[in-house]
């Protein structure tokens, strides 16, 4: 029922009038709220061009410097996210396949590890990557340093490998049984069947979910600012607003950058999902809910 107009009758003259009145009332109420917020911000001088200029006015003397900083931040955010996504996809495939293919007893440690990794907050993972890995013999530079990149990547990877493993597992499980059986019948080993027949299809069915999870990774990179000094987008924003005192303005701009990238990615997921639903053997999966819904069913 994606066409929601089925919820109510085609409006007659009376319903149309009511809807119009409703729209006007709601619209006015909204404008009133927005005006109060605007006026209060105006009272504090938050609309002043001194605060917005460095971000929006190309002729401003620090405009270029500010955007150079934001550009570096964006590049670092994307690099971090990309490295974390690649690593966690690779490891996620290994864990997902192991979980599907291992026998009942051999599976237990894999399931346990996935459940533990999935059950911990990403930010705790980052703190653990910083605090626990040295005990395992990994030597970092002291905290305010370039190695914050690695706490971020390790933290993100540990969490997301479990998520990707679960996404791929539910993708493999959504395939018709005949796919695997046909593979075995033509003489492939179970592993070959998995790699050559099941995984490619699972990957395709779950591509929307994987893309949606990329949005999550991209957003979570900003958590590192609570731990290290990796110059990602939000950290760069902090440097800028601590310098220029335009906290809200910089945050709004950074928020818009994040929203633009993630919105594009989300739309890509929806588009891929629409294309896929015609072509794969697996059931189609709502891309918006897939990342959250898929891993839950254990």
């Amino acid at each position: 029922m994606s066409d929601l107009s089925v919820l109510y009758d085609a409006p007659g003259p009376k319903a149309k009038r009511n809807a119009t009145i409703g729209s006007v009332v709601v619209g006015l109420a909204l404008l009133a709220v927005l005006y109060v917020v605007y006026a209060r911000l105006d009272e504090k001088g938050q609309w002043s061009w001194d605060l917005w200029g460095p971000l929006l006015d190309p002729s401003n003397e620090v405009f270029e410097l500010v955007w150079q900083n934001l550009g570096t931040g964006l590049r670092n955010t994307l690099t971090g996210a990309l490295v974390a996504i690649t690593l966690s996809l690779l490891l996620g495939v290994v864990f997902g396949v192991a979980r599907v293919m291992l026998g009942r007893w051999a599976r237990i440690p894999v399931v346990g590890l996935i459940e533990i990794l999935r059950g911990l907050p990403v930010i705790v993972m980052m703190f653990m990557a910083y605090q626990l890995l040295p005990a395992l013999g990994v030597n970092y530079e002291p905290l305010p340093g370039p190695d914050a990149f690695w706490y971020m990547v390790v933290g993100l990877t540990l969490y997301n490998l479990a998520v990707f493993a679960e996404i791929l597992r539910s993708g493999v499980n959504s395939l018709p049984k005949g796919q695997r059986e046909a593979g075995l019948v033509i003489g492939l080993t179970p592993l070959q069947t998995m790699v050559m027949i099941q995984l490619p299809q699972a990957f395709r069915t779950m591509l929307p979910a994987i893309i949606s999870q990329m949005v999550v990774v991209l957003k979570d990179t900003s958590l590192i600012m609570f731990l290290g000094q990796y110059p990602e987008l939000l950290y760069q924003a902090k440097i800028i607003y601590q310098d220029l005192g335009n906290t809200l303005q910089t945050l709004v701009v950074v928020g818009i950058i994040f929203i633009a990238i993630n919105f594009a990615l989300s739309q890509l997921a929806v588009w891929v999902e629409k294309r896929m639903s015609r072509r794969s053997a697996g059931k189609s999966i709502d891309p918006i809910m897939a990342t959250t819904a898929a891993p839950v069913k254990v």
């Binding site: 911000l41 939000l234 945050l251 994040f258 929203i259």
Partner: peptide, 24 residues
């Protein structure tokens, strides 16, 4: 939905923590 869902929680946190005091 489209704005908040695509914004990192940290950015929402900062905007609330700095924005709400500004509007009183």
């Amino acid at each position: 939905v489209n704005l908040i869902r695509n914004c990192p929680l940290t950015v929402v946190l900062f905007l609330i923590a700095f924005g709400l005091p500004t509007i009183g």
